[in-house]
Design a protein around this nucleic acid. Structure first.
Length: 280
DNA sequence: AACCGCTCCTGATCGC
DNA sequence: TGCGATCAGGAGCGGT
């Protein structure tokens, strides 16, 4: 399940292969996964940049186009120069990659997604700003200067009764956290996942900021977390899963106090925490 | 207005 | 061994 560190690693693995190369959308593609609101062409368009915002990837193309991708749970980009290699099961979109307009493809960029929760959307500059989807209501980027204790304190004031776990997962507050990192951040900060954010002090928010930056940076450096499906654009697994303290470890011993890690459900997500270290 | 919970979807895992 | 039930969850949306 790609969250910010995994999406960042996908971006970094694809960029050297795709920058200044040309993409052509090949049939077949899956209409549920591929959304093309403006009926725009996608043929021999040059990739000028690959950016990340939260969990979204933005392939910036010439002709004022953006291919915006969200991988949700099981979406995966695979870059391959072996055109004869078999596609992964559930491959829904394929792009031919060539060095120039009219040249034959030397590679393919493939999108596979067993659960089909992910979406690829092709938008022009104007549409990108007005299209109604999560990309346009994202909150602070956690590895940017906007992400400060004061920002979180102000945001918490707008939803004081929200549980901190739900708050961390709210993409309009912080862009890019998912279930794994939310649990790890709360554990690192010794905060119970059900604490209402209105009762959290600025000093605690400072700790949340510091631990979020520390954990995300560490995970990016370790090529992300491969819990089930995640791979980068070259098919490589992450290494951060061996550094997880609580996610996926319900019933096991707490690495800090040796108590038993508990599990609960908060806004539909399984949540693991240490009842001793993270008291209310 | 601020939440809650349902929906999408398949593969892995579990209990009988 | 086989088969049905359960669980995993990001974002969007309808309901309260």
């Amino acid at each position: 399940m790609p969250e910010l560190p995994e999406v960042e690693n996908i971006r970094r693995s694809l960029a050297p292969h795709l920058l200044d190369e040309y993409l052509t959308l090949k049939q077949p593609f899956h209409p549920q996964v591929w959304i093309n609101p403006g009926d725009l062409p996608c043929r021999d368009v040059k990739v000028t940049a690959i950016n990340r915002r939260g969990k979204y990837l933005d392939f910036v193309l010439d002709s004022n186009l953006h291919l915006v991708a969200h991988l949700r749970m099981t979406g995966r980009f695979t870059y391959t120069e072996d055109l004869a290699s078999p596609c992964l099961p559930h491959t829904h979109v394929i792009f031919a990659v060539s060095h120039s307009v009219g040249l034959p493809a030397h590679a393919e960029l493939r999108y596979s997604d067993p659960r089909r929760f992910g979406r690829l959307i092709l938008l022009n500059d104007t549409e990108l700003k007005s299209y109604k989807f999560g990309y346009n209501s994202l909150g602070a980027e956690p590895l940017s200067p906007d992400f400060t204790p004061a920002y979180l304190l102000t945001a918490a004031g707008k939803h004081p009764h929200a549980k901190i776990k739900s708050f961390l997962l709210d993409q309009t507050v912080i862009a890019g956290l998912g279930n794994i990192y939310a649990d790890e951040i709360l554990y690192a900060c010794r905060l119970h996942p059900c604490i209402p954010v209105g009762s959290i002090s600025e000093a605690s928010w400072e700790q949340v900021v510091n631990e979020t930056i520390r954990l995300l940076s560490l995970s990016i450096a370790n090529h992300g977390t491969t819990f089930r499906d995640y791979r980068d654009g070259d098919g490589k697994r992450g290494g951060f899963q061996s550094l997880l303290c609580v996610y996926g470890r319900a019933g096991q011993a707490c690495p800090r106090c040796n108590g038993i890690l508990a599990t609960t459900r908060i806004s539909g997500r399984s949540t693991v925490y240490c009842p001793q270290c993270q008291a209310m």
